[in-house]
């Protein structure tokens, strides 16, 4: 690929910002409709989910195109997914719950529990995404970051559970995720999907 690495990284950074910028435009122009809180929360959650899937696609892309550039933007994309997930959670607490009914919501509502679990799995990966943490964790780093597979499945279920009558969209997302995971299985075997497995075990 002809694109130099810094330019490619810059481009990916800008692309990953588009969902946020688009939301800002819609807020400023007042085009979010009569229930803007709901709209903002949904848009942020979808951005997090989509970026998580894109992150999963980087390893396959680098193998297909035999170019390491994809791997080099993987961490940034993963952190963007986490960033949007944080904003999504904040928006949910502020706009949908208004900080009330917290206990019942997070203990009794299955789709909220699934979404929260997905978020909790992203958290240790975001914390250990720095170079320093990578070195400190050594061989344990990679198994830890395989948490992304259960995280994306939980996020998918979190969406699927909310689709009220038409699951077409979520079936498409499901197929994309299944395809990406199938590629991993084909290349690296089943065990490459299991998080937290001891290295060499």
């Amino acid at each position: 690929m002809a694109l130099p690495m810094p330019a490619f990284k810059g481009l990916v950074f800008l692309l990953a910002l588009i969902p946020l910028l688009w939301l800002v435009v819609r807020i400023v122009t007042g085009s979010l409709g009569p229930d803007p809180g709901q709209e903002v929360t949904e848009a942020l959650g979808l951005a997090a989910f989509q970026l998580l899937i894109v992150t999963l696609g980087m390893t396959p892309l680098s193998r297909l195109f035999k170019w390491q550039g994809w791997i080099r933007v993987r961490r940034m994309l993963g952190l963007f997914a986490f960033f949007y997930a944080c904003l999504h959670l904040m928006a949910f607490l502020q706009f949908i719950l208004g900080w009330t009914d917290l206990w019942a919501t997070f203990t009794r509502r299955p789709y909220i529990i699934l979404g929260s679990l997905a978020f909790l799995l992203l958290l240790p990966m975001a914390i250990t995404s720095t170079r320093g943490m990578m070195q400190r964790l050594g061989k344990r780093w990679k198994p830890l970051h395989r948490l992304v597979y259960p995280a994306v499945l939980l996020a998918w279920l979190h969406f699927l559970w909310q689709s009220r009558s038409d699951i077409t969209e979520m079936l498409v997302y499901g197929l994309v995720i299944a395809f990406l995971l199938a590629l991993r299985v084909r290349w690296f075997g089943w065990r490459s999907l299991i998080p937290l497995r001891k290295p060499g075990a």
């Binding site: 807020i27 229930d35 809180g37 709901q38 208004g98 019942a104 509502r109 299955p110 559970w161």
Partner: peptide, 23 residues
Amino acid sequence: VDHPRWSQKRERRLPSGLLSPNW
């Protein structure tokens, strides 16, 4: 009586706003 997925105790009277949700 809550919906299994959310509370029915309150409602957002539309149009609602981002900074001042019309609960």
